[in-house]
């Protein structure tokens, strides 16, 4: 096996691709959180007899979320090309890839946040109501702070999934590690590049996961700290 992949050119390509991946994932994760967090809170609190009871809206949103999540990512990428073009002016490239990534991740985040919020003890909501808290105060002062450790873990999971999704956006000319791996590693028969790409992805996932775990543990006051 040659050591060609250590050449400055190859290393430069991998570095560029890593930065592309990082910024695609970071930006889409951030926007997906901004959209998914409130949607998740709404999903968790709008059922019949709940804080913001709106069963019809709850069902409608639930349907949209399910529909988005059941569409294979690669199909989603292609299917929303007109929308992507409308939003960022182009359907090709890294910037354009952020749109489908966000749209795929937001419902995922919403479901995860919903689960985290539903895990909060109903007794706490009752206590807050007994104190005279408004529904919004209950969300901001009780539900979200109490669910925060679980929400952080959910976001970690979403970011890891986005790293995987981002490998597919090469199909529409999005850059990043996945694209590099396919074009050089597969199409140009450079298995060493492929291997390097995989190693970088593994390292990224490890970093994201361990950071998320650590942050969540720090926020979780339910555990006794020595």
């Amino acid at each position: 096996m040659s050591l060609d992949f250590l050449s400055p050119v190859i290393l430069g390509l991998v570095l560029d691709a890593t930065l592309d991946t990082l910024w695609m994932v970071a930006l889409s994760a951030a926007i997906a959180t901004l959209i998914g967090l409130p949607l998740g809170v709404f999903l968790a609190t709008s059922g019949r007899g709940e804080l913001f009871a709106a069963p019809a809206a709850n069902r409608a949103l639930g349907f949209v979320v399910n529909a988005t999540r059941s569409t294979p990512f690669i199909i989603l990428v292609v299917a929303i090309i007109p929308f992507t073009r409308l939003l960022v002016g182009t359907s090709i490239g890294t910037k354009a890839a952020i749109v489908p990534l966000t749209i795929a991740a937001a419902p995922f985040v919403a479901r995860l946040v919903e689960g985290a919020i539903r895990e909060v003890d109903a007794g706490l909501v009752e206590a807050a109501r007994a104190m005279g808290a408004s529904p919004l105060q209950i969300v901001l002062k009780v539900l979200v702070p109490e669910a925060l450790p679980a929400i952080v873990l959910s976001l970690t999971l979403a970011i890891v999934s986005l790293l995987g999704f981002s490998a597919m956006v090469g199909a529409v000319g999005g850059g990043g590690l996945g694209d590099l791996g396919i074009r050089y590693g597969y199409q140009r028969f450079m298995p060493d590049v492929m291997a390097l790409v995989v190693v970088v992805l593994i390292v990224l996932v490890q970093l994201v996961q361990s950071t998320g775990d650590r942050l969540s543990r720090r926020l979780n006051k339910r555990l006794r700290h020595a």
Binding site: D121, L124, A127, A130, M131, E146, K221
Partner: peptide, 15 residues
């Protein structure tokens, strides 16, 4: 707010 309440399982915020 003029009625206090305490609970069997305390219902304190863990955070």
């Amino acid at each position: 707010r003029s009625i206090g309440m305490i609970f069997q399982h305390f219902n304190l915020l863990s955070s």
